[in-house]
Amino acid sequence: MLLLLLLQVLASCLWLGHGEVVTSLISTCPQFFFQKTPPNAALTPQNPAWICQRYGNKYYFATLYDKSRRIPVYSAYLYQPGHGKRCQRWMVEPQLVGPQYPKTMETESYVLHELKVSKQELQSSQAVLRDYEHLEGFHRGHLNPCSHNYDSSSCNSTFTLTNIVPQNAKLNQGAWKRYEMTIMKSKTQGCAETYVVVGSVPGSNFFGNRVNNPSHIWSGACCKTTSNTIRAWGVIAENTKNAVQELSLGELEDKLTDHYGRGNVYLFHSSCPRQ
């Protein structure tokens, strides 16, 4: 136990990234959900992991991860765009291998050589960088994007493979980027706080029989305005086309209810308007 404690302390000093696998997002990092209300269980996969994403001893966003499909179901965060510089040091999550490992995101090299996790153990538990090599026509698509974060630390916290899905390259660099950078900025005018949940609908195909290729990418937002009103909206995109469909929150939830097929989907607290 002493050795493990020393290893955890050393890891905290050497690496800034932390991702804590928890039993409940609402009990550990509720601040990323409007009225502290996460999406309901209709999005929960058969083999889930709830992660409070922490960097430099501070939580920055929350993720529901599908361990079987090796993609995140969603990431939830506060929209706070800034000008943070990217470090682009991609991380994996040791705790997805087992709870005995440190609560810290680390590079694959650190996990394999310092924590002595085997390649098979690591690859069985989650996506690794090799899964995203040579994916023709696809990018590593952030759910919580760097551009929606206010400084370098919050930006860097998004570079974990538990926040990444295979995203159509044209969509990632085209209509989805336009939504993230331009449309989102317009929609949040007058918002004092904007809560966002971005997710992926599992598809029927896998890359290398390992990482699921999502059929759709979606985003919902609910904001409290400076005049103390509440407004909400959503978007969805097929992961084969360079197009984003703008929707009301209710329309998005209806579409996700159909796509997931596990009952009615509710992304936000009931006070967020659905129309």
Rank of each mutant, 00 (worst) to 15 (best):
K185H: 11
S186F: 02
K187C: 01
K187T: 03
T188G: 00
Q189E: 08
G190C: 03
G190Q: 02
G190P: 05
G190N: 07
G190D: 09
C191S: 13
C191L: 06
C191P: 14
A192R: 15
A192T: 09
E193S: 13
E193K: 14
T194N: 09
T194Q: 09
Y195I: 05
V196Y: 03
V198E: 07
V198L: 02
V198M: 15
G199Q: 09
G199S: 09
S200L: 11
V201Q: 10
P202H: 08
P202L: 13
S204W: 01
S204V: 05
S204F: 02
S204R: 06
N205R: 14
N205T: 15
N205S: 15
F206K: 14
F206M: 14
F206A: 09
F206T: 14
G208N: 12
G208P: 05
G208Y: 10
R210H: 15
R210V: 11
V211W: 08
V211C: 09
N213Q: 13
S215C: 09
H216G: 04
I217Q: 10
I217S: 11
I217A: 10
W218M: 06
W218F: 15
G220T: 05
G220Y: 04
G220H: 00
A221P: 00
A221M: 12
A221R: 07
C223T: 02
K224Y: 07
T225N: 08
T226I: 14
T226N: 14
T226A: 13
S227T: 15
S227V: 08
N228P: 05
T229P: 04
R231A: 05
A232L: 06
W233H: 11
V235P: 04
V235R: 00
I236K: 06
I236P: 01
A237G: 02
A237Y: 02
E238G: 01
T240C: 04
K241W: 01
N242Q: 09
N242F: 11
N242Y: 10
A243K: 15
E246T: 11
E246Y: 05
L247H: 00
L247W: 01
S248Q: 03
S248E: 04
S248P: 08
L249I: 07
L249C: 05
L249D: 03
G250I: 08
G250F: 00
E251H: 02
L252K: 03
E253I: 00
E253H: 03
D254L: 12
K255W: 11
K255N: 06
D258T: 13
D258C: 01
D258K: 15
H259F: 15
H259L: 14
H259S: 13
